[in-house]
Simulated assay, not measured.
Amino acid sequence: MAFEKLRTNRFNQWVIIHLRYLVGFAFFPSGLVKLMGNRFTGISTDNPIGYFFEALYQSGFYWNFLGLAQITAGILLMTQRFAALGAMMFLAILTNIWIITISLSFKGTWVITSLMMIAVFVLLIWDKHKLLPLFNYKTDLKEYPEPKTAWGIAGAIYAVSCIALYILDPVKGNSYEKWLIGIFVIVIVLTFIFTNYKAYKNQN
C-alpha cells in the first residue's frame, strides 16, 4: 500500500518528527504570553482585533487557561510518544484561531494559520491508524515504527529550553541571565546535531 510505504520510509519519519517539533514550538510564544498573564498585542481597542484580544485578556483565568492549553498541546507533540493526542488537541485550538484570523481579517496571519492547519492535518493523517478505532471499533490496528526514545528526550529538552528562553530576558536581563540564554541556545543546537547525527549513523 502507498500509505504503508510512506509511513515506513525513514526520511518521511524524520520529516514528521521535526514537523512535530516545529508545530509544537509554534504555540509556545503566544501560549507563554497568556500563561504568564501578559497582553498578547499592543493594538488599540479602537481596532476590532485589539478589542477582541483585550476582551480575552480581561477574562482573567480563561486567558491563562488558553495559554496552558497551547503549551500542553505543544509539549505533547514534542514528546513524540503522545504526538497523536497533541495533534488532536492542537487541531481543536488551532481551528478556533484560524477562524478568528479569517473573520477579523488579520493581514497575512490567516496565511500562517492556514499553513499550520495543513501541517496538523498531515500529522493526523500520519497517525490515522491510532485514530480510526475511535470511529470503528472493528478496525485492525496496524503497527508502524515509532520514534526512538532519543527523539522524545530531545523534544523535552527543546520544550524546557524554549520556556527558559522566554522567561529569561536577553535585553533587560543581567549578565548572569545572558550566560544562561547562551547555554540554552547551545543545548538546543547540540541536541539537534546529536539526534540527527545518531539518526543518520543508524541509517547507514
Rank of each mutant, 00 (worst) to 15 (best):
I112N: 06
E146I: 03
I181W: 05
K148D: 14
T8K: 11
R39Y: 06
L124V: 06
I75T: 12
L19E: 13
E177N: 14
K34Q: 00
E4C: 00
E143L: 07
N174T: 11
G50L: 02
A154D: 04
T45A: 14
L180N: 05
S114R: 07
M36N: 10
I71H: 00
N9G: 01
S175E: 15
I157E: 03
L104Y: 03
I93Y: 09
Q80M: 12
L180Q: 08
Y197C: 12
A73S: 03
Y137L: 02
N9Y: 00
F53H: 11
T95I: 10
K198P: 01
I17P: 15
V33T: 11
I157H: 02
F82W: 12
A199E: 15
R10F: 12
F65R: 10
R7F: 14
W14A: 10
E177Y: 13
G24H: 02
Y51T: 05
F121P: 01
K128Q: 10
K130A: 07
L66W: 01
N136M: 05
R10A: 14
I93D: 04
G152A: 02
Y176R: 05
K148Y: 07
V160S: 08
P145A: 09
Q58L: 08
G67M: 04
R7C: 13
N204G: 11
Y57T: 12
D169M: 02
F82R: 03
H129P: 10
F25W: 13
L180A: 07
G173V: 02
M1F: 09
K142I: 15
F82A: 04
K5A: 15
L32E: 07
H129A: 14
K128T: 03
A73E: 01
M116E: 15
V122D: 10
N202E: 13
N204K: 09
F121H: 04
K148V: 11
L165V: 05
F40G: 10
V185A: 12
I112H: 03
I75K: 01
V171F: 10
T195N: 11
G60A: 02
L168T: 05
K201H: 15
K178Y: 11
N12F: 14
F184D: 06
E143C: 04
E54A: 07
A26K: 10
K198D: 05
S30I: 00
L32S: 02
E54C: 02
F28Q: 06
E54P: 03
N64R: 15
